[in-house]
Structures are given as C-alpha cells and as structure tokens.
C-alpha cells in the first residue's frame, strides 16, 4: 500500500461556511484498484457474495456481469456494488476511502501532490471522461503513477467511496428537478467552491446519481487502511 501523508485542501464542496478546508489524516491506500482475480479469491472465502447467492438489496442483476464472458484477471473488478466493495475491504481489515481521502489523493499528478493548477493534468482527466469506454478496462497499473505512488487514480475506472451517499447537490439528484433546499437540512451550506474544477463536478454529480446496489461497467474500488 502507499503511504499518504495527511493534509488539507479546499474541496469542491466545502463542509462548513467558516471553514473551506477539508483535512484528512495519514493513511495507507492500495496502490491499485482491486482486481478480478483478487475479488474471486474473496468470493471463495465469502460465498454469500457470489452472484448466485447475493440478495438484490445488496447488488442489482448486473453484478459481475462481465464475468459471463472472457475477462482479464489483472483488470480492476467492476460491476460491483458499494455493499460488496465495503465488505471486501473489511475482509482485509481495511475500509473504503472516504470521499475526502479519495479526492485528496486524486489531486496529484506524476510530479506534484496538488496538480490542480496544472492545465495538462485537468485536460488529461477530462479527455479520459470524454473518451468512449472500452467494454472492459485494461490491467491495473496501466496508466500513470502519481506522486503518492498510487496508480490509475484517473484514467482507468471510477471508484466507490465510503460516503458516496453524502453528496447533496440537489434534493434528489437522481430526479430531474431543480435544487430543492427543502429536501435537505442545511443544504444551503454545501454550495460549490472551485467553479473551475469541472472534473470534480462530474465526479460529484456521478456519485450523487448512484445507489449503493448499482453495479456499473466502469465502476470499481480500492481500499485504504488507517495507521496503527
């Protein structure tokens, strides 16, 4: 795992009107996303999460659907729900990264821990968001290694975060309605900070649009661990 030294940064959505900084502590993060082969070992150990046993409240029918055809063992596992991703990390005495932790690591490019002011970095992310996705992702570690020694944070797959369901952009982001502050207690305080950070907007919108049992073709995960 890669050691991530904690720090603070201004996230896209601030938590508190008086405090625009998000602070994360030190932690370890998996250098790459969890692969198909690692995930199948987990299923051998915990057969209740196998496709034939899983309850639909925990994963929709698309769960692991790419395993029906040929797939790359070293590619990140996708089509997995949040519930199962969470259980996987717990089975390794790890946990899913919080959104704050994930976004903190995702600020980095090859050379800097915070590359937000680097136009080429932002362009790389946006180009990747724009490009049509291959049916199945490439092997892990096939894109760049960032300053934290973490691979593929951008460019391979999207990743679950522990508190993905804390995105409160509109009342019900899954519905085509305008922001309704009445639906949320305190939602007025979560307005966006950095209006130029379009890539982060896309990620927040995506997280706000999904549910915990969704299984999506290019959505996988990696785990983190606290320091002892």
């Amino acid at each position: 795992m890669a050691f991530i030294e904690g720090g603070s940064y201004a996230p896209l959505y601030r938590n508190d009107e008086n405090n625009t900084k998000e602070t994360v502590g030190d932690f370890y993060m998996d250098k790459s996303a969890v692969t198909n082969s690692a995930f199948s070992l987990f299923l051998e150990q915990f057969p209740q999460w196998k496709k034939e046993n899983i309850k639909s409240i925990f994963a929709e029918s698309n769960y692991l659907s790419h395993w029906e055809n040929e797939f790359e063992a070293d590619a990140p596992v996708t089509n997995v729900s949040w519930f199962v991703a969470k259980k996987y990390c717990e089975s390794q005495q790890k946990r899913l990264p919080t959104m704050a932790e994930w976004e903190y690591v995702a600020l980095a490019d090859q050379n800097q821990k915070d590359a937000r002011s680097e136009p080429s970095h932002n362009q790389y992310i946006l180009d990747w968001y724009e490009s049509p996705k291959a049916r199945s992702p490439k092997k892990v570690k096939s894109t760049f290694k960032n300053k934290w020694n973490v691979f593929d944070i951008h460019g391979l797959i999207w990743e679950w975060t522990y508190d993905f369901n804390s995105v409160l952009i509109s009342g019900e982001s899954r519905k085509d309605v305008k922001t309704d502050r009445n639906l949320f207690c305190g939602s007025g305080s979560v307005d966006a900070n950095d209006l130029m950070n379009y890539a982060a907007f896309i990620r927040y919108a995506f997280r706000g649009s999904i549910k915990a049992n969704y299984c999506i073709q290019n959505l996988g995960f990696r785990c983190v661990k606290d320091l002892k």
């Binding site: 938590n15 508190d163 369901n165 804390s166 995105v167 409160l168 019900e172 899954r174 949320f184 979560v190």
Partner: peptide, 20 residues
C-alpha cells in the same frame, strides 16, 4: 442509509445535512 437511499453528511461536529 445506503439501503434507504438516504444521503447525509456531517457539516460541523454539531450539524448534518441529510435527505428528508
């Protein structure tokens, strides 16, 4: 909360935003 599709986040040590 995930099973109910209820979203929430802690804003300050005292306050949360949450779906009603």
């Amino acid at each position: 909360a995930a099973a109910l599709a209820v979203n929430y986040k802690q804003i300050t040590p005292m306050d949360f935003s949450h779906s009603n």
